[in-house]
Design a protein around this nucleic acid. Structure first.
Lengths: 192, 192
DNA sequence: CAACTATCTGAACAAGTGTTCCACAAGTTT
DNA sequence: AAACTTGTGGAACACTTGTTCAGATAGTTG
């Protein structure tokens, strides 16, 4: 146990650091990347104005750290959609949830996409869920699967700009159509 | 011709107004919505700093005017993709162009999408091309067509965050897969 | 040419920004 | 307890932002 003695200061610091990142994500969900400033984040996190600067060299670092971190969660969410039990119903339900209850988070994800379009360093994080989906599902027909993944992004995106976000029942038949011939790519599923 | 006498001043004004909007779009393509300021737009358009404020009450108005205007062009681009001759090859070529040569413009479109997600007033403009596509193609199987449209958005978006943007040859088989059973929705095409 | 009007613009301002700096508090080690 | 490291936060800075405004300019009309 001698080596495991942790510095209480660093422990608290790391905790605060995480709190700041989480606050940043909340700001992004609520107001978009544009709303992220040292002050808005500090206010959201309940810390002094200079705290974010202390933990992150620059505002950009904070933004990138937040998006990289959120990408992990988003990856999980997306995999849950892609491999959620498998039935069209369940996939449709997950999609409906993403554009309704989790609207803010879904918007945040596409903020990440867009930023990745302009900042190469974010690209791997943005497309992580795509790579992981292929790894997990191991589709026999990669083409069909890529089309399916593309359609998911499209459905979410279009769901966000609809007058009223689509619900489970509206999405189900479309998903159903997309995974007709589902055996093509779920022939060799694989848990890891 | 008496009534048609135009005020030369107003004419020039309207021209300048358009020039400012076009400059704004260029800024968005290059740096994203975040890069749009009165000053950056003015610099791009080669007009004094206060010109944009003169023509648009607020910066937000300028941004919205630009996105609404660009939506028209984007709508045309998208329709060209959806109804480009019809072969998978041609659709794939249009898609490849969008994520390569026209990368900036495509990014701008998704900036519009994202902003529309947070500003209801932009929603109609953002999904205009979807509505128009349905009008023009008049698909017999709307479900299949909606899936196809969703996949297009997904392919473009994912093309933007790829390490190297996909080319025509990579996209063609995916598109091909998507429009197998194409007769389903192109049964009753319609020029307008 | 003079009166008028619409268009234009440079200077200026208040507000908000990222970031620096420094004194100090808290925790750890010797 | 003394020396140290790490975390903390308020004040202040240089800078950019959106917007205002008074006056200049240019086009139209009598």
């Amino acid at each position: 146990m001698e080596l495991q003695k942790v510095d209480g200061r660093k422990a608290r610091g790391e905790k605060k650091r995480r709190a700041i990142v989480e606050a940043t994500l909340r700001v992004i969900e609520r107001e978009g990347v544009a709303g992220v400033t040292h002050r808005s984040v500090a206010r959201e996190a309940g810390v002094p104005t200079t705290a974010p600067t202390y933990y992150f060299a620059t505002l950009d670092d904070l933004l990138i750290a937040t998006l990289l971190w959120s990408a992990e969660e988003l990856c999980d969410d997306m995999l849950k959609i892609v491999a959620s039990g498998g039935s069209a119903r369940e996939i449709a339900r997950s999609l409906a949830q993403a554009v309704n209850e989790n609207r803010g988070r879904t918007l945040a994800e596409y903020e990440l996409y867009l930023l990745a379009g302009r900042r190469p360093e974010l690209k791997p994080a943005a497309r992580r869920w795509l790579d992981r989906a292929v790894e997990v599902v191991r589709p026999a027909d990669p083409l069909a699967f890529r089309a399916f993944l593309a359609a998911i992004d499209g459905l979410l995106l279009q769901g966000l700009i609809a007058d009223v976000a689509p619900n489970e029942d509206e999405l189900e038949p479309i998903v159903s159509f997309l995974i007709r011939g589902r055996d093509d790519f779920t022939a060799a599923p694989k848990e890891e």
